[in-house]
């Protein structure tokens, strides 16, 4: 993915529904960050937001993951241009 393809860095909770982003930084406490990484949601993972602002529903590696607002605020993503359905994995 060329660097120009990335746009703004936003918190996951701010990613609009339907948009895809790449995780670029985890800012929560250490234990949370490690758990997120262990679940394959770490830096460089592609995430597609399905719905939600307060509680977010996302698709990561084909798995639907629910995150509360605090968790979604702790995950910084770089937004990617829209991908065809299924490509987010």
């Amino acid at each position: 993915m060329p660097a120009s393809a990335f746009s703004a860095r936003v918190q996951l909770c701010q990613l609009p529904a339907g948009a895809t982003g790449r995780v670029c930084q985890l800012t929560g406490d250490e234990s949370f960050c490690q758990r997120v990484r262990e679940m394959g949601f770490g830096e460089a993972a592609l995430v597609t937001k399905i719905s939600g602002t307060t509680t977010s529903l996302c698709l990561v590696n084909g798995t639907r993951i629910a995150l509360n607002h605090r968790a979604a605020m702790s995950i910084m993503v770089e937004t990617l241009p829209a991908l065809p359905a299924g490509k987010a994995e």
């Binding site: 929560g28 949601f41 509680t55 798995t63 639907r64 993951i65 629910a66 995150l67 509360n68 605090r70």
Partner: peptide
């Protein structure tokens, strides 16, 4: 304590 993080898998 601070509100906890939640990350939970939703099964098909």
């Amino acid at each position: 304590g601070a509100p906890p993080h939640m990350i939970m898998e939703l099964p098909p």
